[in-house]
Design a protein around this nucleic acid. Structure first.
Length: 452
RNA sequence: GGCGCUGUCGUCUAGAGGCCUAGGACAUCGGAUUCUCAUUCCGAUAACUCGGGUUCGAAUCCCGACAGCGUCACCA
């Protein structure tokens, strides 16, 4: 059997989406599991919709996720210049499988649901305009979907004459995929489920061009929790936005792996390499999954906790400049306290901001005995000689015992005075990092504001 | 509306006729640890869309209904 060759073929019309990343990942794994090739093709045949910089961004992101493609990137617009599509479209016309149409393009939205499947130009023998496929009547068009693992077929009478080459000389998707997949030697074409309805057109083009049909598989659509296909406006589904929110690439990848694919043993944690090794197309899911952020958060928390100290530290530095300004020892101490308490890198600012920026204490958070608690804490902490966890712990605990404070209430008031939040890392650890001077300064500041 | 795909806990899923009084994970709730929050560890709640068949026996096979999703451009 030939080596497997797959491809990811995005169009540079916007940011890379979670669904696109998943298609790329599955295509990559499909090829790499059998040491095959994974190629990249940019489908830029719609000049009007192309977003500047999008194709570069897509490549940058694929690299960041480790989805490295083999060989040169294939750019469709370059192949247009070489005339490949036009030549083959004309060949289809000369062989009677396609025809010219110079009518003005239809506006889909205004058409409504009643449209003719057969184009009036199909037998007029025109010699210019767009080139459309001449679909036969009453033929069975079938293929076996390797994701669905079943045969899917249509009566060609329900398939409409479709444009293959636009009058500007650019191919439509329907012509370009077929020719490019053939020329690139693609053995397995994986694509979104939304392409299913146009598959019979592609099947016909394969047949008329005399190409060997590759394995074709349609992936499920990722659904929005609110219903419908996942869309941009409902939450951030762009890969870059997720990255900016503080999700790690390995989390996003692991999350996406399991949206539409599962192994027999139900294992959930996979690195890219582990996934490639475990990958089996039989694990493809057939029904549409819902994008579930809770699970993503869980993966991310898990992977944050797995990070080596210096990795976590540099990621936190990259996302908070004030933190990056601290000396190295403090940075490591803080990131160590924080690693078990954040699910996203962006949670850091809220949780640990008090280390490097003073906040106004929130009086409402104090307990009834806060004045007494803070006064005695101030007295005791002043007398600490070695500003280390052990001594601080020991002195404060003794204080609590002597004065018969309630341990929880005491520490909570101390915490609120210093961090102005009820949710923080352990307060004694925090105070060690903050330093004696700053700790006492903050306590006194609160005390003096109380007497006013 | 036509055409097509799909239908197991709230969510991601395991399950390919008896091993299922349906398993795991996330979420939720409860408990243990704890100065808060978390982490970690225990435990609980929770599903085979419905209706007909086939069979000694069905989540698993067949038919129908219903539901969800996709698509119907000189966009991809």
């Amino acid at each position: 059997m030939d080596d497997i060759r797959t491809r990811f073929a995005p169009s540079p019309t916007g940011p890379l989406h979670i669904g696109g990343l998943r298609t790329a990942l599955y295509s990559y794994a499909l090829a790499k599991h059998d040491s095959g090739d994974f190629l990249l093709r940019i489908e830029d045949t719609d000049k009007k919709r192309e977003v500047p910089g999008a194709k570069e961004k897509i490549q940058e992101l694929l690299r960041e996720f480790g989805l490295i493609w083999d060989g040169e990137v294939v750019i469709q617009s370059k192949r247009v210049e070489e005339g490949v599509y036009k030549k083959l479209a004309e060949k289809l016309v000369s062989e009677g499988h396609a025809f010219y149409c110079d009518c003005k393009a239809r506006n889909a939205k205004e058409e409504g649901y009643s449209k003719d499947l057969r184009d009036p130009c199909r037998d007029k023998g025109k010699a210019s305009g767009a080139i459309k496929l001449k679909v036969p009547d009453g033929e069975k068009i079938a293929f076996t979907d390797f994701v669905l693992e079943k045969e899917v077929f249509w009566d060609s009478s329900t398939v409409s004459d479709t444009t293959l080459l636009k009058s500007d000389g650019f191919p439509t998707y329907h012509l370009a995929v077929v020719i490019d997949d053939n020329d690139m030697g693609i053995t397995h074409a994986l694509r979104g489920h939304d392409w299913m309805p146009s598959t019979p057109i592609h099947l016909l083009v394969y047949k008329y061009l005399g190409y060997k049909l590759p394995e074709i598989g349609h992936l499920t659509d990722i659904l929005d929790p609110e219903g419908g296909k996942l869309s941009k406006r409902k939450g951030s589904t762009s890969v870059e936005a997720l990255l900016n929110e503080g999700y790690l690439p390995e989390s996003i990848l692991n999350f996406v792996m399991l949206l539409g694919w599962a192994p027999k043993d139900n294992r959930e944690l996979f690195s890219l390499q582990e996934f490639v090794k475990a990958f089996d197309p039989k694990g493809f899911q057939k029904s549409n999954p819902v994008f579930n952020r809770d699970k993503l958060d869980w993966f991310n928390g898990h992977y944050i906790r797995q990070l080596a100290a210096d990795e976590l530290n540099s990621k936190l530095k990259a996302q908070n400049s004030k933190f990056a300004g601290l000396d190295k020892e403090k940075q490591f101490a803080i990131s160590n306290l924080v690693r078990e308490r954040i699910n996203k890198l962006s949670d850091f600012d809220e949780l640990a901001g008090f280390f490097f920026e003073e906040r106004k204490p929130d009086i409402k958070l104090f307990g009834p005995k806060h004045r007494e608690h803070l006064q005695s804490a101030n007295e005791v902490l002043e007398k600490v000689e070695n500003w280390e966890k052990e001594e601080i712990d020991q002195k404060l605990l003794t204080l609590i015992k002597d004065k018969e404070f309630k341990t929880g209430d005491f520490f909570m008031d101390l915490r609120v005075a210093i961090c102005s939040s009820k949710i923080t890392p352990p307060i004694n650890d925090s105070v060690v990092i903050l330093g004696k001077e700053e700790t006492i300064r903050r306590i006194r500041k609160v005390l003096s504001s109380l007497t006013n």
